[in-house]
């Protein structure tokens, strides 16, 4: 799923500007999804494997609950954000906190968190698969309608524009917040040295819940935006997106806001190139190949700190 569909909106092939726009809108969607994941991983050190399932299930719940009435765009988006945040916090409190409390070393906690996340992600996936009988689901009942605008020959949908605007606002805001505010300082401190941070009075579990809510809310929003953009998602839509987001995060370097921005747009650009230059469905392989290349050549990513590479 996902890869390069936005570029496919371009009606005339070889229309470079159209493809660049498609790549920017695709990269923006990746960014909304990946940003929170990067913040959580870079600060409290949790790689949430259920992030993709939260993304998918937020859109799924919206599609189920909003069938009855013609909800406007903003309401759907808000409900998606709330669902995503709530699920993410639940995963943190019911799964990750329990695992951390029962782990003896950071190394064993890391991998148990990965496994716990996989387990937690299967549950919403299974429910969605069961209810939809593995068919795509959408938000057709919403009062919102996708419209295509044409500006100087460039075709863009209102959803694409909204995605780009949201991505710019969220990335800028969270980048500034991390750099300037007290809370941001605490988060960066805990990412660099948890022990010192806790001596400084940083409350790790509260920060974890806060960042997980932030990440989950963004995942929910991304789910709603992508559903509007594509018309429908499938229960498996979250799986591949998760691995793509992982590619974006490690490309830039875990915990770096600039890094994840660069990572997302690099992946989107690479996928757009592969989509337009090759036949078949190789576009899916771009992210996986990228993960390999980064991890082998420069595991800390472009903007990563040295300590992030764990042993």
């Amino acid at each position: 799923m996902g890869g390069g569909h936005a570029a496919a909106h371009g009606t005339t092939r070889g229309h470079t500007v159209q493809e660049v726009f498609g790549a920017v809108s695709l990269g923006s969607l990746y960014l909304i999804f990946a940003l929170g994941m990067s913040v959580v991983w870079g600060s409290v050190g949790i790689l949430n494997f259920a992030h993709g399932a939260i993304f998918m299930f937020s859109a799924f719940l919206c599609s189920q609950l909003l069938q009855a009435f013609a909800a406007p765009f903003l309401l759907v988006a808000l409900v998606g954000i709330i669902f995503g945040a709530v699920m993410s916090v639940l995963v943190q409190v019911l799964v990750f906190q329990q695992i951390v409390a029962r782990s003896t070393s950071e190394r064993s906690a890391d991998i148990r968190i990965l496994i716990g996340g996989i387990g937690a992600g299967i549950i919403p996936l299974a429910i969605a698969q069961h209810v939809t009988k593995n068919q795509p689901f959408g938000l057709q009942e919403s009062s919102f309608r996708t419209t295509i605008w044409e500006v100087f020959g460039l075709r863009m949908s209102n959803v694409q524009v909204a995605t780009i605007v949201v991505a710019v606002v969220v990335a800028t805001a969270s980048g500034l917040w991390l750099a300037r505010s007290r809370g941001g300082l605490a988060l960066r401190a805990i990412g660099v040295d948890p022990e010192v941070a806790s001596m400084m009075g940083v409350d790790r579990s509260r920060l974890a819940i806060g960042t997980m809510a932030f990440a989950g809310g963004l995942a929910g929003l991304a789910g709603v935006l992508l559903t509007f953009q594509l018309g429908a998602l499938t229960p498996h839509s979250g799986d591949a997106l998760l691995v793509k987001a992982f590619a974006c995060v490690i490309l830039g370097g875990v915990g770096s806001t600039l890094g994840v921005v660069v990572g997302c747009f690099t992946l989107a650009a690479a996928e757009t190139v592969v989509l337009t230059q090759t036949s078949g469905q190789w576009v899916e392989a771009v992210a996986f190949g990228l993960i390999f290349a980064i991890l082998v050549i420069r595991p800390v990513g472009l903007f990563g700190r040295q300590e992030v590479r764990r042993v």
Binding site: D110, V243, A285, F288, I291
Partner: peptide, 21 residues
């Protein structure tokens, strides 16, 4: 750790892409 886990997950998914193509 995690990096290795994710690299191997990417490898698995890559095999799936090769199977399709």
């Amino acid at each position: 750790g995690l990096y290795l886990a994710m690299a191997t997950v990417a490898f698995d998914l890559m095999i799936g892409v090769v199977a399709v193509n």
